[in-house]
Design a protein around this nucleic acid. Structure first.
Lengths: 190, 190
DNA sequence: GTCTATAAGGCGATAGAC
DNA sequence: GTCTATCGCCTTATAGAC
């Protein structure tokens, strides 16, 4: 789904790469099909051979973004057993995926379902599928606190890194480690 | 600044109220001057008597939003002395301002400076001024952790409430209380 | 101060040549 | 598969009547 044409030797991939970067940097509304096509080295109308509409293009980017961030997270969970270590590893994967300059996952944070009413339900379904991974991770912790609230708290903070992060200061790993420590150790009682 | 005409008995206020709601719900790009004017009971062109441009209207909403959220926070700090109690009170004010259905402060979260390049610097300056309050509150805690990271962590999570909050489940006060407890008490070591 | 009408430009999407 | 040209629509913003 999303793509209308999947034959080989076409340049749908270049279009998607360009769209991912532009959607992430400018948002959906301010990005034009003309920009995406031009960034992929094509004429203004050619994108419509590969995608039936602008929303369809976003859908394809979103699907790839969810695949990427899920992959990053799962990959880092391999062999890690202690629940808090697993949480830290997953958060590292999430933040890395969400900050990588060329990554599709950035779009999941930048473009919210409400921004594109036409396909809002589809986008929401993709986000929900990914959040299941996090429901599991939080559940493993066995804390007494509200797990849903803790998950939303942590992912909200993690996604906000995209707004203020500047390469060269901290690394995604350092940020993820600090965030988990904020939760794990008591910061004070006064 | 921002408004071009401040004489009394005009209806700039109605326009701003309508703009705040629409910008918060639809974002800047998808909201049209026609919608705002119509929501304020005016014809399509009449908004330009009060504001010189769409960006100028956003600027005025932003200014009011920063005033509102700052006011909510300061008001709740009155008489509270213990640093962690002050943090909890401030967070309650922030989240309440950011979730109130008709509040200007919602726009500060919904519309990011990068969304409107024309006035991005101005918007950023207003956000930075507000963050100074939080730098102070975090500093009062006297924790050993990175204060900037803790502030961004907490405000990132607080702002994300606007994405998932549904009235009727939790109250802003409950959410703020839970968030502060996540930081204050250790959640586990396993 | 608000109205209606319209100018000027950009957008998504399509058509048909190659 | 990609090109160029263009349709039709919607936008911000302006002009001039009232």
């Amino acid at each position: 789904m999303a793509q209308i044409n999947q034959r080989e030797n076409n340049r749908a991939a270049e279009l998607l790469d360009a769209a991912a970067v532009l959607f992430a940097e400018q948002g959906y509304a301010r990005t034009t099909i003309r920009e995406v096509s031009s960034a992929a080295g094509m004429g203004p109308g050619s994108a419509y051979y590969h995608f039936s509409s602008k929303a369809d293009m976003l859908l394809a980017v979103y699907e790839q973004g969810v695949r990427n961030v899920t992959g990053e997270v799962i990959r880092r969970l391999d062999g890690v057993e202690a629940p808090w270590d697993r949480l830290a590893a997953a958060l590292e994967g999430h933040i890395a995926a969400v900050l990588a300059p060329t990554a599709y996952a950035r779009v999941i944070v930048t473009v919210l379902p409400g921004d594109v009413p036409d396909v809002a339900d589809d986008l929401r379904r993709q986000r929900d599928a990914y959040e299941l991974v996090w429901k599991g991770l939080i559940g493993e912790l066995g804390t007494a606190v509200d797990g849903d609230l803790l998950r939303l708290f942590l992912l909200g903070a993690a996604n906000s890194t995209q707004i203020w992060f500047h390469p060269g200061t901290q690394t995604p790993t350092e940020i993820a480690g600090a965030f988990v420590e904020f939760l794990r150790q008591p910061l004070g009682q006064s």
